[in-house]
Amino acid sequence: MRNLTSEEIQLIKTSIKQKGITSAEILSEVYDHYLTHLENQPEDAFKENLLELDEKFTYGFCKKLEADQKKSVRKEINSMEKEIFKSYFTWPRFAFTLFFIGSISYLGTLLPFKTQVILFTMVPLVFIVGLNVVIMFRTRSKLKPLKKDFSDQSLKITSSTSDYLNMQTHWPITLTNVLLHLPRIFGLTDFIPEYLYSFLSVSACILLVFYGLILFEVFKEKSKTAFV
């Protein structure tokens, strides 16, 4: 094993940049593969070996790896979320679930509608927005070394795991906005019957809290091992 010269490292980076890889997971894997392979080859055969690697990691192959990676991240996160959701209905978490649903339902009978909306919908939403900000900052700091290595690459390097988690934090916020504001566009201000107020706000709260907790647990787990 030998240390590569800075010119050689630059040639490797130039070569990898031409593949248009944007996924941090694939980029780091391909870069590490190139470096490790070339470190184990003689200096005088560097260019031949680099060319050989380029023939293996073609543009099309790298794009396919990226697409598969995105699918695999989605599949993995979705199945993690299902597992975590199921765990809320198994002992000992089931006690928390029962207590939480019971408390929220009881509070729903006591509080006026406006307070319920603020408390039951906004608090979990603020938690989800906070999580989104944390995910963005964590990803940014984890991607820093890789971005530094490929700083002059025109394509933006992103983490597939972080992208998918971010997308998941966006949709409850968007959905709430749509549900609150869309009816107003059509002049519908009091379209919800009064007897449904409590039921709707309590249900929204339960769904949002579970959703936020599941996302948080996935983030906690993935942040140990992924670019997030």
């Binding site: 997971e25 780091s28 894997e29 870069y31 590490d32 470096l35 396919k64 790896l65 598969d68 990676q69 699918k71 695999s72 599949k75 993995e76 199945s79 984890k142 070394p145 890789l146 290595d149 140990k224 091992t225 992924a226 670019f227």
Partner: peptide
């Protein structure tokens, strides 16, 4: 190799972790 590794990861047979090794990130 790489498509097989990624498929196995998606199927939940493998898990990954990233580590900083010799000035680069290793998976």
């Amino acid at each position: 190799l790489y498509p097989a590794l990624h498929k196995m990861e998606a199927d939940g047979l493998l898990t990954t972790e990233i580590e900083q090794v010799d000035n680069r990130v290793r998976k």
